[in-house]
């Protein structure tokens, strides 16, 4: 069941999709839903290299470029960490953790920056980066929205890797629960069947759900019941019949 805030996220996403979706639209939704100045999304599949998946505005694009070049900043920390990362007052920052990033981020116009890990269980996909042109901590509601948006982005990344068209992402994601134990168990099983990692297995599961026009939860249940399995030798799905 999509709750109020999720409904807001999906309707905003759908609106951007109607206007001609591009990679920055998820970031624009993130900035709007958290009521911050801008947002960027970084992908970090191998935990070493970070690439940009889009940004909502000029400043966010430059902040992301900065993080990729310097290899430091909120997104870098969030990619490998457990919790959200923040510096709520860059100008008066008493921490020396981002010595190169902080002065240049201020120059770009950021006064407070936030990073939310984008992960699905143990699978790390990247991070959501947010900035504001005024200093100050996030309210409880803003932080909740940040975590929620990071989870939506995680599912969106998987859907795109599985070949979903950008124009129908909101509708695809809205159909499914944010947590379904069957999906995660099935991904674990498929990782072993396909000799791959759980992240790839989630993409595999999702791609097959698209290809067969089956809800991902239904497909996951069939995998657990061993009615469907993946054969890595020829990269095909096997259906148990009868």
């Amino acid at each position: 069941m999509a709750t109020d805030r999720l409904v807001d996220i999906f309707s905003l996403m759908a609106q951007y999709e109607r206007d001609g979706a591009n990679e920055g639209s998820l970031c624009m939704v993130a900035a709007e839903i958290t009521e911050l100045s801008g947002a960027g999304i970084a992908l970090s599949p191998n935990k070493v290299d970070m690439t940009s998946m889009g940004a909502s505005d000029e400043a966010s694009t430059r902040l992301m470029d900065l993080e990729i070049t310097l290899r430091e900043g909120p997104c870098n920390d969030a990619c490998g960490g457990e919790d959200a990362v923040e510096d709520t007052d860059l100008v008066n920052s008493d921490t020396l953790r981002w010595v190169f990033y902080t002065p240049q981020a201020i120059e770009i116009g950021a006064r407070a920056v936030f990073g939310f890990p984008v992960r699905i269980g143990a699978v790390r996909l990247g991070a959501l980066s947010l900035y504001r042109d005024k200093r100050g901590a996030l309210t409880y509601e803003q932080a909740s929205s940040g975590y929620l948006m990071a989870s939506v982005i995680g599912r969106a990344i998987l859907a795109m890797q599985a070949g979903a068209s950008g124009g129908s992402l909101a509708a695809e994601l809205e159909r499914e629960a944010t947590f379904d134990f069957a999906i995660h168990q099935a991904a674990g099983m498929l990782a072993v069947q396909g000799s791959t990692d759980v992240g790839e297995a989630l993409v595999l599961l999702r791609a097959h759900a698209f290809a067969t026009d089956t809800p991902i939860s239904t497909l996951a249940t069939k995998v657990i019941a061993r009615q469907t399995s993946f054969n890595k030798e020829n990269a095909t799905w096997l259906e148990e019949t009868g």
């Binding site: 143990a122 409880y140 932080a143 947590f179 498929l190 072993v192």
Partner: peptide, 28 residues
């Protein structure tokens, strides 16, 4: 600096990791 949001998020993430691991163990 752990907040309520972080605590809830960690608990929820833990459950997902356990489900992923259960799938791998069951298959192996």
């Amino acid at each position: 600096a752990t907040t309520l949001n972080e605590q809830l998020n960690r608990a929820l993430t833990s459950r997902i990791i356990i489900e992923q691991a259960k799938g791998m163990i069951s298959e192996s």
